[in-house]
Design a protein around this nucleic acid. Structure first.
Lengths: 211, 211
DNA sequence: TTCCGATTTGACCAATCGGTCAAAAGAACG
DNA sequence: CGTTCTTTTGACCGATTGGTCAAATCGGAA
């Protein structure tokens, strides 16, 4: 087990007024849009400020730097992103638990594509800022779940599958519909891919996992 | 069918000396490295020039702009990227044909991760420069293959699966090991993921496709 | 050697970048 | 009203960006 990563931690939670909280939220919203479209380097403070309806110095009054906005976003998102994983119940029915996880992840791709693309941008470019979280919290969580899955397999309650690669499969298959959205829609003539995706992934994992 | 896209076409093939061909190749090599690490906006001409062992004006002597290098790369890569798809033989054994395709794609993730990440960067950020190719050549190729697969299914030679989503699955599962390499390795303690991936994907698609 | 086109480079430029600062404008409260 | 604290802004700065250009250098043919 790795000890909890010291990176991406929030500083002291300063007492914020209602206005400050609201403006910071506006900025994070705008930052999410811009960073997810352009990546860290591609995003500009001017664009984020415009998107948030603020002047650039005003934006910098609430967050001290571009880095600060980006890291605040990553920090907030990490929890959201790991939630569906933690919701898997070791005492549940294995195949159904994993299928439900796939469903949750697919729904996140549909409902929060910007968040997915923000992570995708970060990781494709080498994860320079969330690597510690990947090697810390994420790895721990994955290893814990891998143990659970191995138990399920040993008990004959699901087909024998490498737990780590199973998780990679869930991530890649579901996030693909958010991250590669434009490609998917280009191929499908702009039809909504999600109904078909849900059915397909249900079939795929059911076939893979049913003992 | 969409007519062949007019974008990303090479200009008249000017007669090149041996030196010109070599230097241009150097530049594309360096460009591939830098663009795949940083995306279009994140890449700088200075970095590409340094990587190629040239001065910036010298680099611009061979390619007129940053855009020109990037588009030359995308153009060259598109063919390479579509090759494994075209190698699928409609007269072959369905399950084995698709499994072989998966194998080729996975090998490309292992051997050409920069190329994979270049595309990933481009598409995650909205595919502003290869959208025409996606809606043209790619869509045509995919639709052609989808017809073949539907034929295979109708003949009972493979399990009934949505052909488009099947292809998305192949792409996402295989490219994940290149595009999200740092995440995969972070979770796996830096072990080589490819042997396990090969076995896992073979199992996954065999289960999915065997009638 | 001379010559000529191909190649290379240092110096430079305008635009954009992230970020600063002092001063102005609001808001809250007496 | 005046005072005090918070919020907002225009003007500005140094660094970096993509790209230009004239001059220097190179390399091969005669």
């Amino acid at each position: 087990m790795t000890e909890k990563s010291a990176f991406l931690q929030e500083g002291d939670t300063a007492p914020q007024t209602r206005i400050q909280r609201a403006k910071r939220q506006q900025i994070l919203e705008a930052g999410l849009t811009v960073f997810s479209e352009a990546g860290f380097r591609g995003a500009t403070l001017d664009r984020i400020a415009t998107e948030a309806g603020l002047s650039k110095p005003n934006l910098l009054y609430y967050y001290p730097s571009k880095e600060a906005i980006y890291e605040a976003l990553l920090r907030d998102l990490l929890a959201t992103w790991l939630d569906p994983l933690q919701a898997i119940d070791p005492k549940g029915e294995p195949v159904e638990e994993i299928l439900a996880y796939v469903g949750r992840k697919l729904q996140m791709s549909r409902d929060f594509p910007r968040e997915s693309r923000l992570f995708a941008n970060e990781i494709v470019q080498g994860a320079p800022r969330i690597m510690p979280a990947l090697e810390g919290e994420l790895r721990d969580l994955v290893n814990t779940l891998a143990t659970v899955i191995k138990g399920w397999i040993a008990a004959g309650r699901m087909a024998p599958v490498d737990p780590h690669h199973l998780l990679f499969s869930v991530w890649s298959l579901t996030q693909h519909y958010a991250d590669f959205d434009v490609q998917v829609r280009a191929v499908l003539n702009d039809d909504d891919p999600f109904p078909g995706a849900e059915q397909h992934l249900d079939l795929l994992f059911r076939r893979l996992l049913t003992p």
